[in-house]
Computed example of a mutant assay.
Amino acid sequence: MSIEKYNQAKNLIEENDYLVDDFGGASDTIIEKAQVVLDVNFPEDYKTFLADYGALTFGSIEIYGVFKEDFEDSGIPDTVWSTMNERKLVDMPKHLTILLNPGMGELYCLNFADLNSHNEPKVTSYYPGFPETSQQNEVLYDSFGEFLLDMIKEEIE
């Protein structure tokens, strides 16, 4: 299950806390408001991440999350601000929520139109500026927990 992968990632984060810069956990109210604004229901592993960290910089990676209630007056790594911005700028589909910008032109997103066997969104690619018809939305990870664990392991190595 994805929460198990999340918990493995959390243990690695705690063991390597010198690489951590987090925003403090997000309240249930902020998490709920983020879901309403984005019109999605976050999976449990991502909600737990948000409650634990808000958003997270671990070494050189920046995992998007929520950490303040004023999404409009925010910026990176606020997932609501970033996702709403991309929806306006390049008409990014509403079933995608940004998790990471690795700086190579592609965004890693929770894809609420592509669910795993636990009915949770998979993490897929999205290339801003390309028409939806040419997007492959390649599945990168089966769940947020799997994504986070891999990102943390890569950064440690």
Rank of each mutant, 00 (worst) to 15 (best):
E138G: 00
V66G: 06
L19I: 00
Y18I: 14
D91I: 09
F71D: 00
S74H: 08
D91T: 12
Y108D: 07
I76Q: 13
P77Q: 02
D17Y: 13
L96W: 04
E154F: 00
E157D: 11
G65C: 08
D22H: 11
T57V: 14
F23N: 15
G105A: 01
K68H: 13
D114P: 01
E69A: 05
F130I: 14
E86L: 04
D73S: 14
P102K: 13
L100C: 05
F71W: 02
F71N: 00
F49S: 02
P102M: 10
D142L: 14
E106Q: 12
E106L: 11
E106T: 07
F71E: 01
G24Q: 06
I30S: 08
Q135G: 04
I30H: 09
F130L: 13
N41R: 13
V40L: 05
N137P: 10
E120H: 04
F130T: 13
S74V: 05
Y127A: 02
T29R: 10
T124C: 12
P121M: 09
S143F: 06
D114K: 12
F112M: 02
S60G: 04
K68D: 09
K33A: 14
N85C: 00
Q135R: 05
F112I: 01
N119T: 09
G103Y: 13
T57F: 09
K33I: 05
F58T: 06
I30P: 05
Q35D: 12
D150H: 10
N101T: 05
L140G: 03
D52F: 08
L140P: 01
D73T: 10
I152T: 09
I30T: 11
I98H: 02
E62H: 04
Y108R: 11
V90P: 00
P102L: 12
G105D: 03
A113N: 07
Y108Q: 09
Y126T: 03
P43F: 08
M92A: 11
I76N: 14
M1W: 11
A9M: 05
A113W: 02
F147Y: 02
F130H: 12
N85G: 01
N7L: 15
E86Q: 12
D17T: 10
Y46T: 00
G54S: 05
L115H: 06
V123T: 09
E120R: 04
L148F: 13
D28K: 15
F112D: 03
A113R: 04
C109F: 06
F144L: 03
D45M: 07
D21G: 07
G103M: 07
Y53P: 01
D39C: 02
Y18T: 14
Q136E: 15
S74I: 07
E62I: 14
V37M: 06
E14H: 07
K10A: 08
D28W: 15
F71I: 04
N137Q: 15
N7I: 15
Y141D: 04
A9P: 01
G24V: 03
P128N: 04
V90I: 12
E72L: 15
D142R: 11
I31C: 10
M1S: 11
F130P: 05
L96K: 08
A51I: 14
E154A: 06
G59K: 10
M104D: 08
F67T: 04
